[in-house]
């Protein structure tokens, strides 16, 4: 069983979260669920990982948080992406495309079956 590289994914948690916020604001559990679904359950993000990414990105000004009263009467924290968050996201996309392109050249294709 191959599993994803935690070293690589760590550098792209922010990118993943920002991507999911592009369509509109969202909250913790919804984001973790979308990550799980979109990755076909190959990547299940830990809650502490998700939360530390939120606080770090908020500190850097990439996202903003605000509270909303949910139907159940509980308050829920929503996050939305900022302008500088969008810039950062585009930058990370370019970085990934370059990284992928370079690494690809060193991966042997095993299709001689």
């Amino acid at each position: 069983m191959v599993s994803i590289s935690s070293d690589v994914i760590r550098g792209y948690n922010d990118t993943i979260i920002l991507y999911l916020l592009l369509d509109g604001p969202s909250y913790g559990y919804e984001i973790s669920k979308k990550i799980k679904d979109l990755s076909d359950e190959k990547y299940i993000i830990k809650q502490t990982t998700l939360y530390s990414a939120f606080t770090r990105m908020e500190k850097n000004g990439y996202i903003e948080s605000y509270s909303v009263d949910a139907e159940s009467g509980k308050r829920r924290t929503y996050y939305r992406v900022t302008e500088s968050g969008l810039d950062y996201y585009r930058e990370k996309c370019n970085e990934w495309n370059l990284t992928k392109e370079v690494i690809e050249r060193f991966i042997r294709k095993e299709d001689g079956e």
Partner: peptide
């Protein structure tokens, strides 16, 4: 952090 993490855990649990 505690509130936030608790909220996430509760959501996940309920689902």
């Amino acid at each position: 952090a505690k509130t936030e993490l608790g909220q996430m855990m509760e959501d996940k649990y309920n689902e």
